[in-house]
């Protein structure tokens, strides 16, 4: 059965690119437009991986990470950050909050799939 990925980004263009990449590799994809939407969908669908942006309205990616890690199902599910943020300071915050990995945009579809393959392959 195909693994399911929750792809979270407030940019429709990025969601389109990410979904195109992941579906092309055989993953099921659920899209969310911000952290709140992601949290709602993560509670309904027990996904195998979360791929999230950081700068988003309502609940941002770092807060989403913190909130997901408090949920039983998401304590061990890989959560990857896909963001324009690349400073060591914000990466350290993400790592401390339980991020599995960090991908700086612009994303490379091949490398995104390699990383996803490593963490849920």
């Amino acid at each position: 059965m195909a693994k399911t990925i929750l792809a979270v980004d407030d940019s429709a263009s990025i969601r389109q690119m990410v979904t195109f990449t992941l579906k092309g590799a055989g993953y099921e994809v659920i899209e969310a437009v911000d952290g709140q939407d992601a949290l709602d969908k993560a509670n309904i669908h027990k996904v195998n991986l979360v791929l999230t942006d950081i700068n988003m309205p309502r609940i941002d990616g770092l807060k989403l990470l913190e909130l997901l890690r408090k949920l039983t199902h998401y304590k061990t599910v890989p959560i990857l950050m896909l963001t324009t943020e690349s400073s060591d300071e914000i990466k350290a915050k993400g790592r401390a909050a339980g991020a599995t990995g960090w991908l700086v945009k612009p994303f490379d579809p091949k490398r995104l799939l390699e990383v996803i393959g490593k963490v849920i392959g």
């Binding site: 407030d10 940019s11 263009s13 990025i14 389109q16 690119m17 195109f20 990449t21 700068n55 309205p57 324009t84 945009k105 612009p106 994303f107 490379d108 579809p109």
Partner: peptide, 28 residues
Amino acid sequence: NPLNASARYGTYAMEILINQLLKLGARR
């Protein structure tokens, strides 16, 4: 094609601008 390198770079250039506006307090 959304995976074309040009489109990915253009999207990135636009996202950087929009993210900085949102950080300054603009609403999408």
